[in-house]
Design a protein around this nucleic acid. Sequence first.
DNA 1: TATAACTATGTGCGTACGCACGTAAATACT
DNA 2: AGTATTTACGTGCGTACGCACATAGTTATA
Lengths: 147, 147
Amino acid sequence: MPEDVADTWGALLKVHAALVPLLDRELQEAHGLPLTWYDVLLELNAAPERRLTMGQLGSVAAVSRTRVSRVVDELVRAGLVARDPNPDDGRSAFAALTPAGRTALRKAAPTYLAAVRREFADHLTVREADVLASALRKVLAASGRER
Amino acid sequence: MPEDVADTWGALLKVHAALVPLLDRELQEAHGLPLTWYDVLLELNAAPERRLTMGQLGSVAAVSRTRVSRVVDELVRAGLVARDPNPDDGRSAFAALTPAGRTALRKAAPTYLAAVRREFADHLTVREADVLASALRKVLAASGRER
DNA sequence: TATAACTATGTGCGTACGCACGTAAATACT
DNA sequence: AGTATTTACGTGCGTACGCACATAGTTATA
């Protein structure tokens, strides 16, 4: 008996709606980091040379491209990110993780990971987690391709 | 080689970020229904007697409990939902799907389902979809239990 | 029954968000 | 080279959102 497609998608929506505010509050209370900041710091940390242009950041992060400008503004004011000019393109600007930004990310990561495990991963078998990851990545690849 | 828990969760976040705005725009352009409206109508349609109290609606829908009041206001103005008093509890009020609401939902559903298939389900095998649905439901059940 | 504690709902208000637009730089075209 | 088109970015502005609080009705306590 195959699942209804809408039910599977609906379950994903509900999980997102239930867990994201929870993770956000937990990060904020423990470290003063909104989930948006954490997400941006995470992406920058994973990027080559720990920096990305605004456009790249808008593509990979959960936040929209236009929103990135203001979030990076906030992060710069907090000292966690620096705006570096792009020598190869005068229009472009890099958002680069500062040492303070890395430190903040390292400090917040255990809180975030613990919450993700407790609320999400601990309820999945290893096989389920693997299937989930590969399946979601396929969806993501298809979505990114036709953009 | 087991997946990192954060990567799996991160993939879910990215899929949500990529697909939700797309579904919203598509529903809006084709039928003038924001995704929020569609979600509320869907939950009401699935409920016994096609109605729910505000609190119940806030729990099952993706929208927060406080937000429900205003969304239902809009739906009432649009004629898709009616506010029925609850005879058993004077504080409470039902949001009940009107015939026009059911019609709107029936009309919008094909658009929504087609988009969900195209962007999501078509990229999954049947087995993956089944694992996804059951896994996400387990997460959801655990999250709802300790609330 | 009278009062206290609790629950369901609506609303004021500040924040987060993304679209539409403007600006500046790079690329394509002649 | 000079002009037009495209691209990357930031900002004004209106909308969506949820928290904190107020209100009214219900349940528990004495």
